[in-house]
Simulated assay, not measured.
Amino acid sequence: MNEKEIIIEIQKEMKKFFTQETTGHDWYHIERVWKNAQKIATHYPKANPLQIELAALLHDRYDHKIVSNVEQAKLEVRDLLVQHGLTKELIEKILYSIDAVGFRNGKNPIQPITIEDKIVQDADRLDAIGAIAIARTFVYSGAHQRPIYTGETQEVLEKAHELEDTAIGHFYEKLLTLSDTLHTPEAREIAKGRHEFMKEYLTQFFAEWEGLK
């Protein structure tokens, strides 16, 4: 099985696995991250495209938000890669790229090292910036009974991230911080307009909340 065939098979596996996911970490999110990664990778011809594409396709397969047993799910991913004939060295690199994707309140102890790691992390974070990111935030919040907003001022939200767990609070806790964490100039360029759109959305949101518009 050649590299293209392996990618197609993993794509099919992930599309099937995420069919019933409804919290914003669905197949369409996976697909967007995969496409983001491919787009960024075109600027880095020395990077390993197989590592990048497989890590992008598999990046949420053992995420704690998706599965109840992370270690078991990670073993399943490892076994899947073994079944497709990948070398032990490449499998470890793919798993490291996946582990480095996570945000974990900005304190993920596993940080991207290689350009492959950085491309995959950037690709995932781009999907958490912009219009789709806003939609995903509210879908996730609804799925987890998280309120939209509980009335804190913007000043309070900007200074204290550990307040009431709300959809709007999540903008300040995570979404608005992501642009500054991107590694590649290609991702940073894409993020500019998306970041500004989120700020504009919040301006409109607060104006409507106060009955000003």
Rank of each mutant, 00 (worst) to 15 (best):
F17P: 01
K192V: 13
A133N: 06
E186A: 12
M1S: 09
A207N: 07
K65I: 09
I119R: 05
D122F: 02
H25T: 07
H59K: 05
P185S: 00
N2C: 05
D99S: 14
H144D: 09
E92Y: 02
E164M: 03
I168M: 06
E173G: 07
A167H: 06
T150K: 14
I129T: 05
T87Y: 01
T184R: 03
L212S: 09
F17E: 13
Y149H: 10
D165E: 14
R188K: 15
H29Y: 07
A160P: 00
H59Q: 12
W27H: 05
K174N: 04
A100S: 15
V67Y: 02
L58P: 03
V120M: 11
A191I: 05
T87M: 08
D60A: 07
D79G: 03
A187K: 00
K213P: 01
K74I: 08
E53A: 11
D165I: 07
L212F: 03
H84I: 06
V156I: 13
T137W: 00
P45V: 14
K93E: 15
I110T: 13
E31S: 10
S179C: 03
E89V: 14
N69A: 12
H64C: 10
L157N: 00
H64L: 12
Y201I: 08
I7M: 09
L50Q: 10
K199R: 13
F171S: 04
K88L: 15
L202K: 02
F197W: 04
T166V: 11
L163E: 03
V139F: 00
A47Q: 07
Y28I: 05
Y149R: 05
N108Q: 11
R188S: 08
A100M: 11
I98P: 03
V67D: 09
H64F: 08
Q11S: 11
Q111D: 09
K12R: 15
I148E: 11
L157I: 04
E200D: 11
N48W: 00
P147K: 06
P109S: 11
A37Q: 07
K15H: 12
D165Y: 09
E116W: 06
K93A: 14
E155A: 14
K65H: 14
W27L: 09
L75W: 02
L176Y: 01
D127H: 02
T184I: 07
G193T: 08
T150W: 02
G106Q: 05
V82Y: 10
Q154V: 13
E53S: 14
E189W: 01
Q145S: 15
R125E: 03
G24C: 09
S141D: 04
F205T: 02
G142V: 04
T153K: 08
E92V: 08
V156F: 05
G193D: 12
G85P: 06
V101N: 08
A167N: 10
L95V: 14
A207E: 11
S141N: 07
E200Y: 01
P49L: 15
N108S: 12
F17S: 12
M1I: 03
R61I: 04
H43S: 15
K159S: 13
Q72R: 13
P112K: 12
N105Q: 09
Q20A: 14
I8G: 04
A191R: 01
A100W: 02
T19S: 15
G106R: 03
I8A: 15
F205W: 02
M14Q: 15
G211M: 10
G102F: 09
